[in-house]
Each structure stands twice: as structure tokens, then as C-alpha cells.
């Protein structure tokens, strides 16, 4: 028995396919991440799970209830944080929270334990209008609002988008704490590096899942050897490596370029030689483990080749 069971979901808007045969299960108590760029279909999927949209084809069960027939039961037990933080800008922090508590038939006091750790951070500003809060604080308030009725399942649609890295870190800390309290979390994000913080992830692109597994397994499945290359002129290095005959892929990755070879094993000497000849005498080459973004890009390319 899973908390969310999705099989063969399709959804189209006019001519565009937003979701194309999506199936997955979410286990009780885990953090399940949907990782993919804008337009991949994450929001559509979450709206189906929160009973806001009806799929064209396929079934979805949330907490054992069908998202089409039993939508009322689901709506009572799910906490949903929509993208763009659904807060009332003209209400104060306290009023927002109170409002959401009331419409879910509860009070702030009743479930204060659950939100306490998050709420104390914004409590000093409780008389301030939500519209005047910084992005990080809005995000925290929105999370409190989604939690106030002690939901069994928390569905968070891009809670960290547009938020700075520090606030993102803090936000993930909060999710970890909630997980420990037994709340299952379904979260979507365009930031690949957040995948590592999930128990399991689904990589999604153009309405299709590329892979569903634990982040470790996805990375382990990546068999190519990645070389990190850097030199003084990174752009020129990139151009030169794109022309190198053994190059399978080369992409900027932080301060290094990630290079993979067409052959099973890259020849370091040969590569060094090539770079020297092309004016990169002081280049540095290291081997580096793949991260989720390498995997994502590789899977994207594979998918494109299939099409």
C-alpha cells in the first residue's frame, strides 16, 4: 500500500501534451522529489494529485482515494503549497495562518507543535502584511499554512523556486524535520542539486519521466567516466573540446567542464596532448563522480535520440 499510486496518467492542453503516460508510487514517510525544468509537467501532475485537474487517461490514488471520485476526502487530508506561494498579500502573517487554520476547521494552537519550529522564525513579523515579507519568509509562512491542519501528505509545488540558496537550505532542513514527524512529502523543484535531499526522485522532462529511483541508484547507473577539465580560458576550452574527436559530451559544470569520452575509457595523455596543442598548456584534468545533473542531461539526450 502506497500513499500515492499513479498509473498511466495522460493530460493534454489543446495541442500540447503536458503529461505523457506517467506512473509512479510514493511510499509512506518518504520525501519524493519531482525534478525537472519549467514546462516539464510538474505543476500539472501536482494539480491532478490535489484533485484540481482531471487526467485525460489513467488513474491516481491519493491516500487510497481516487482523485476524481473521492476528491472531497483527499482535500481534507492533503496539505498543498502551490507555486507562487498562495498567500494573501494584504493579510498579515498571523491573519494568513489563522485563515488557513479556520478553513481547515482547526486552530493555530491545536497544531502548533508541528509548525512551531518554522513559525518562531517568522513570528517576530506576525503583524506584517505577507506582501511585505522577503521571499524566504513568504516561503516559510506558506509552509506553515500548508501544515496547519496536520496533513498526512504534503504536496509542495516548486517551493524553492526563485529563492536564494541559503533560504533553500533552510527550507530543506524543515522538510527533513517534518519527515521525521511522519509526514510524507511530495515536492517538485527545478534545482537538480536538491535531488540528493530526497529519498527517491523522478526526473521529468516534456511530460515524461526519465527515471524514477533513489538519487544514489540513478547516479550509480551512470556508467561513463567524467573528467573535470579547467584552464585559464574556459570558453575557448569548451570550444576546443567540442571539436575533439573523442568527445561524447562536454558541458560547463561549476568551475570545471565535465567531459565524457566516446570510448569506454578516456585516454588522459591523449587529451592533455590535444589541449596543449590547442593553447591550453596549463589545463587541469581530474576525475569527478557524476551528480544528478550529469545523469539528467545524459537521460535527456538518450530520450532525444530515441525520438
Amino acid at each position: 500500500m502506497h500513499i500515492v499510486e499513479v498509473s498511466g496518467i495522460h493530460k493534454s492542453y489543446k495541442s500540447t501534451k503536458a503529461l505523457d503516460d506517467i506512473s509512479f508510487d510514493v511510499n509512506y514517510g518518504e520525501i519524493f522529489g519531482f525534478i525537472g525544468p519549467d514546462g516539464a509537467g510538474k505543476t500539472t501532475l501536482f494539480r491532478i494529485l490535489t484533485t484540481l485537474l482531471i487526467p485525460d487517461k489513467g488513474n491516481a490514488l491519493v491516500l487510497g482515494n481516487d482523485v476524481v471520485k473521492d476528491y472531497k476526502k483527499i482535500r481534507k487530508r492533503v496539505g498543498y503549497m502551490a507555486g507562487r506561494f498562495s498567500l494573501y498579500q494584504d493579510l498579515t502573517v498571523e491573519e494568513n495562518l489563522k485563515f488557513y487554520a479556520t478553513i481547515f476547521g482547526t486552530t493555530i494552537e491545536e497544531n502548533y507543535d508541528l509548525i512551531k519550529e518554522i513559525y518562531v522564525q517568522i513570528e517576530p513579523f506576525k503583524k506584517r502584511r505577507a506582501g511585505k515579507l522577503s521571499g524566504g519568509m513568504k516561503q516559510k509562512l506558506a509552509l506553515c499554512c500548508a501544515l496547519i491542519h496536520k496533513p498526512d501528505l504534503l504536496i509542495l509545488d516548486e517551493p524553492t523556486t526563485g529563492v536564494d540558496p541559503v533560504s533553500r537550505n533552510e527550507f530543506w532542513d524543515m522538510l527533513m524535520n517534518l519527515k521525521e514527524q511522519g509526514i510524507t512529502i511530495l515536492v517538485s523543484t527545478p534545482y537538480m542539486n536538491e535531488a540528493a535531499l530526497c529519498d527517491r526522485v523522478a526526473l521529468i522532462q516534456n511530460g515524461k519521466t526519465l527515471s524514477i529511483d533513489t538519487p544514489e541508484n540513478i547516479i550509480n547507473r551512470y556508467t561513463k567516466i567524467i573528467l573535470g577539465v579547467r584552464s585559464d580560458n574556459m570558453y575557448d576550452l569548451l570550444l576546443k573540446l567540442q571539436k575533439y574527436k573523442y568527445t561524447h559530451s562536454v558541458q560547463p559544470f561549476g568551475e570545471y567542464l565535465h567531459y565524457t569520452d566516446k570510448r569506454e575509457k578516456p585516454n588522459l595523455e591523449e587529451l592533455k596532448d590535444y589541449l596543449n596543442k590547442n593553447g591550453h598548456t596549463s589545463s587541469e584534468i581530474i576525475t569527478t563522480p557524476p551528480d544528478i545533473e550529469d545523469c539528467f542531461m545524459e537521460l535527456m539526450e538518450e530520450k532525444e535520440h530515441v525520438n
Binding site: 536564494d164 540558496p165 541559503v166 537550505n169 533552510e170 530543506w172 532542513d173 527533513m176 542539486n193 535531488a195 540528493a196 535531499l197 573535470g228 559544470f253 561549476g254 570545471y256 581530474i286 576525475t287 569527478t288 563522480p289 551528480d291 544528478i292
Partner: peptide, 23 residues
């Protein structure tokens, strides 16, 4: 760097952050 500058008092969580590790 960002975290250190923007929030010097921030204590990183015990979650592994995925970084490039050199060999």
C-alpha cells in the same frame, strides 16, 4: 561561499550536499 556570506550563523544540516569531489 554564498551561505557563509549571506548567513554566517547558519549551521549546515547533516544532509550530504552534493559537491564535486576531486580525486
Amino acid at each position: 561561499v554564498f551561505v557563509k556570506l549571506a548567513r554566517p550563523d547558519y549551521v549546515p544540516n547533516p544532509i550530504p550536499s552534493n559537491q564535486i569531489t576531486t580525486l
